[in-house]
Simulated assay, not measured.
Amino acid sequence: MGRPCIPNTLLAVSNYKKADWKRYRELTAETCRQIRTEGRDINKVTKDFNAALLQAAKKCIPRGSRRYYKPYWNKDLESLQEELSEARREAETQPSQTNNIKLQKAANKFAENYEKVSNITVNRGRQREVRREERERRSKKSVQGRSDEASLTLNELLTALKKLKAKKPPGSDHITNEMLTHMGSFATKTLLDVFNLSWKDGKLPQVWREAIMATILKRGKDNKKVASYRHISLTSTAGKTMER
């Protein structure tokens, strides 16, 4: 097993300490006012909501840099992740042995290519474990398991937002906890509408069901040793907020 390659590169990161949160609240409120939720597909609504937050963040949150970052994610992995998401969608909407095999192949192909890029071995057992954990997470938190038809309230959402911790990595939608906790009041209401639309339809947005396999350095460990890294599964912060 070789050592991981950790080049002296720079990673662009959000500088939340210098963010213009007042303008961010105004922009998210203004943009979210234009988002219609009633009667629309949950995936399209979620896409519009995410775009509103990301556009505001781009204008209000300056970018910094971090040294000693391995740029594991690239266009090839992004393409493979899209193929995996499409295979998963077909397997869930059109259950068949052919689609299940296609999904398995897509998952293995993504894991194998991720392993090559990161230069850190992800054994087959760990790959299966991550996929199993993700299936269990979705099963436990499935909106289909809700026992009543009552809508979520604004107070419930605000309580969940207060529990979010800062400096946590986002999922594939790139929405961070900071973006959620600093939203304008109308943007918060829009997120509540998204949650309730999901409850009503009994369907989670596809992007909330996706996970990114990431490799991170353990605290206080040597970044030149393979054993110093652990694998985590990154999912949508909005999706996790709804689970609360």
Rank of each mutant, 00 (worst) to 15 (best):
S118H: 00
K225P: 04
K140Y: 07
Y68A: 13
E92L: 09
K116L: 02
M183V: 10
R219V: 05
A227K: 14
G145A: 02
T9Y: 05
L191I: 15
T37N: 11
K168I: 07
R89G: 06
K240I: 08
R88H: 02
K70D: 13
A19D: 06
S172M: 12
N15F: 01
N119D: 09
K17D: 11
S96M: 12
Y69D: 09
A52P: 03
L164W: 01
M1Q: 04
A111T: 04
Q144I: 08
A12P: 05
C5D: 11
E134M: 12
L27A: 03
E82D: 10
E26K: 14
P205W: 01
E86V: 03
L154S: 12
Y16C: 12
I61G: 00
L197D: 03
S79Q: 14
E129T: 08
E243Y: 06
R128T: 06
R63Q: 09
S147A: 01
R128H: 07
Q127P: 00
S118A: 05
K17H: 08
V226E: 15
K218C: 04
Y72V: 15
V143T: 13
K141M: 03
S228P: 04
I6G: 03
D76Q: 14
K140P: 00
F195S: 01
K140F: 07
P95M: 00
E129S: 10
E134N: 11
N100I: 14
R135W: 05
R88S: 00
K75S: 10
Y229I: 07
K109R: 12
Y69T: 12
K162S: 08
K70I: 14
R23L: 15
I35F: 02
V194I: 15
V45L: 13
S172Q: 14
V207W: 04
A57R: 04
N100D: 15
Q55V: 14
H231I: 10
A52I: 07
D41H: 15
E38W: 08
H231K: 12
N99C: 07
R89S: 13
L77E: 06
Y68G: 10
R63S: 07
R63N: 04
R137I: 01
H174P: 00
Y68V: 11
H231D: 07
L158Y: 11
E129G: 06
Q127G: 02
K225T: 09
T37D: 11
N123C: 05
K240R: 15
